[in-house]
Nucleic acid binder design. Structure first.
Lengths: 233, 233
DNA sequence: CGGCCTTTTTGCTAAAAGGCAAAGATGAAA
DNA sequence: TTTCATCTTTGCCTTTTAGCAAAAAGGCCG
């Protein structure tokens, strides 16, 4: 079973499963099912009862909150190796957001009610989860600080640099964001409009900082972008 | 020792210590020291090594991030019964923010390196902490959504309603926020300026929604404020 | 290759909010 | 009571960003 083998090594690397014994990991794996997510497909949706939690093996998801009047906000991205949808572990009955595949993705899914059993079997899991959620909290606070104090151009620069870190792939042109990103997406990540993002990107393009096309962004001068992102003025 | 007695009942109520056995709680308490914080005093500061973590018994703190150029952002408030400063539990060496008493406060402090021992003794503690941090993450995402999609007036309304929930005290005039709140504070909670907050509040005052004075806010019509906060237009 | 849907760009205008400066309040301390 | 530091309000002007509308560009499918 080559598939099984692949999964195993990927799972071994999941931060949440670090320092777990092989037997415990086996027990955990025995409960998992595999979920294939074509691009655009939601792993779960905002408001849904959280009957499962997940770990991403391949691909990439965006986690989106929708406001009552339909505006969307990208809260974070899920990268390979991340666990996600752990609402129940935080004793929340429903999912507070929607997770949508931005490229074809592959995830493991476990029944939510297994969480307690897993923790009981391997308490280190709870500590790992705490670290993971703690990191997300830091990231969220960083976003809050940026949204509160920075103007649009710097926010977009920060968002783009984050994408570089999470999904950057070196090419001859520069660092390509390894999944489709529209102006609208960037707007939803930075609390602005696609029009404004477009204007900002056009400016950067002419300065040689980035090269972009339809659903595509290449960062040509990460350092220059970084300077721009940090410069207070 | 009446002080001891008081602490004990307060500690019993800390969400993080729910479902712990009496003996485990005793062991935890034995390691704690008491910390008195006069108004304006920081329990810890951004960047400091996290040698301790805390639980608030009385009073109120604000958790503030300072930007490189000195702007401040209030990330959240710490209310009685909350644990705070648990950076090390999230495997972060330093504190990512500063916690300042906004009224005279009383906290318990434990050495950071006790965390692991506590968890080992009582794994339910890790799960409680996970829930606590999970709740904070939800709150942070809510703030991100607000900052991304709402204009200033609605953001301030939401912030004020949050304060009502966390620290509202009924009086004849209306619901008083039970600690000193300046326009600057509200600005730092909502990503705007004290000038704009002042203008917004003046408008509300004339509509009879709030009554406010120096470092003081009374919500006279919480429902009206709520309508305003939710109305998309 | 051509049509068509989606995404992106851009010009113009309007609204929202910030910055500056100065004048009023308020309360605490002397 | 007077003084003084701190908060708050307000008028005016500027900047930033959103909104609207329309054109341009890309890429996919038949």
């Amino acid at each position: 079973m080559p598939m099984k083998k692949l999964d195993r090594s990927l799972i071994r690397d999941l931060s949440i499963f670090q320092s777990m014994s092989e037997e415990d990991l086996d027990a955990v794996l025995a409960m998992a099912s595999i979920r294939q997510l074509p691009e655009g497909k939601a792993a779960f949706s905002q408001g849904e009862i959280a009957t499962e939690f997940f770990a991403l093996l391949h691909g990439r998801l965006k986690v989106v909150q929708t406001t009552p009047d339909g505006q969307q906000v990208v809260v974070r991205h899920v990268n390979p190796g991340d666990i996600f949808g752990i609402a129940r572990a935080m004793r929340r009955p429903d999912f507070p957001a929607t997770a949508i595949a931005v490229v074809e993705s592959l995830a493991l899914a476990w029944p939510s009610n297994q969480w307690e059993a897993f923790i009981a079997r391997s308490p280190v899991l709870a500590m790992n989860a705490l670290q993971t959620v703690g990191q997300r909290l830091q990231d969220a606070h960083t976003r809050i600080r940026e949204l509160s104090t920075e103007e649009v151009e710097r926010r977009v620069a920060h968002a783009l640099l984050r994408l570089v870190r999470q999904a950057g792939r070196k090419t001859e042109e520069g660092i390509l964001i390894d999944f489709p990103v529209t102006r609208q997406d960037l707007a939803e990540m930075t609390g602005t409009t696609l029009h404004t993002v477009s204007r900002v990107m056009t400016g950067w393009e002419s300065k040689g900082l980035v090269a972009s096309g339809r659903k595509k962004v290449v960062v040509k001068d990460a350092h220059g972008l970084h300077v721009l992102a940090e410069k207070p003025e």
